[in-house]
């Protein structure tokens, strides 16, 4: 057996956390899941007349509920881990810090989103099996690994030119944005995992407050930065040059957000692990 990782010990930690997952989070899952299921049932009943946009909305609904779950899960499952009295048993559990961290990661980052995806696929499949024409075309299933903005009903006017807009939209659609989506999920989870270990009380409100503050500061900085840019040079651009420019801007923003989210995820996950290892009681 290894000091750092042993599969049997890890299995025991996962089993213990799993029991806690369904005990502490089970009812929340049921309540949160009842919302999309209700939506599905309503659409199912009125399917003949339903608009495909109504069906498409379930993707947004699932995303919102998944986000809520990702935010709640760490504080529900591991609420007492850093409590000076209640957290002692967790710390004394004969398993390595890595095993405890990986189990936490498993439930916060992998199990919760997976439950939403599998649930959504299951309900979609059931609805798609209904005979006759219906708007369930495996959208969510396809969306899991092929997310792009062309799926959205929103028509974005990038440059004012219809053809150029189409080229830009096609370029963006060609990007594998599902990776971006999962990195964002990882980033959100890692932030809430870390703050769950950092704060002892009012974990969620403190985290949301800090994130809001950071968001506001970032927006102010962005506005200050972009207001001072002289856009007159764009007037001399041809449509093709404008498309090139917009694609470059898009790539910059995409890479910045992707790299920031990935870096933040690694940093927060590392510090979560450190907190598990170094937490005193």
């Amino acid at each position: 057996m290894n000091n750092t990782f042993d599969i049997r010990r890890f299995g025991n930690v996962v089993r213990r956390d799993g029991m806690s997952y369904f005990k502490n989070f089970g009812w929340t899952l049921v309540v949160l899941w009842s919302i999309p299921i209700l939506h599905w049932i309503m659409v199912y009943v009125s399917m003949e007349t339903s608009d495909s946009e109504v069906v498409a909305r379930r993707d947004i609904l699932i995303s919102v509920l998944r986000l809520i779950s990702l935010i709640i899960v760490p504080s529900r499952l591991y609420k007492n881990v850093n409590d000076s009295r209640k957290g002692m048993l967790y710390s004394m559990t004969p398993a390595s810090s890595l095993e405890k961290f990986l189990s936490m990661f498993l439930y916060c980052v992998i199990v919760t989103p997976t439950i939403y995806m599998l649930g959504a696929i299951a309900v979609d499949t059931l609805l798609a099996l209904k005979p006759g024409t219906n708007p369930y075309d495996g959208f969510i299933l396809g969306d899991l690994f092929n997310h792009n903005l062309s799926n959205s009903s929103v028509t974005i006017n990038y440059v004012g030119d219809r053809r150029a807009n189409a080229i830009i939209a096609e370029y963006i659609a060609s990007k594998s944005l599902w990776v971006y989506r999962y990195v964002c999920i990882l980033c959100i989870s890692s932030i809430f995992m870390f703050t769950n270990m950092l704060f002892k009380k009012r974990k969620l409100s403190k985290t949301i407050g800090i994130l809001t503050l950071v968001g506001i500061i970032f927006m102010i900085l962005t506005v200050v930065f972009t207001v001072n840019i002289d856009y007159e040079f764009l007037e001399d651009y041809t449509a093709d040059e404008l498309v090139d420019y917009m694609i470059r801007v898009y790539d910059c923003v995409f890479h910045f957000v992707f790299c920031t989210a990935a870096t933040l995820s690694i940093i927060f996950l590392y510090f979560t692990y450190r907190r598990i290892k170094k937490q005193t009681y």
Binding site: M1, S91, M92, T93, P94, A95, S96, K277
Partner: peptide
Amino acid sequence: RNPYFLQNIF
């Protein structure tokens, strides 16, 4: 917090 240590103390 070695696991072998932890399994021998409570």
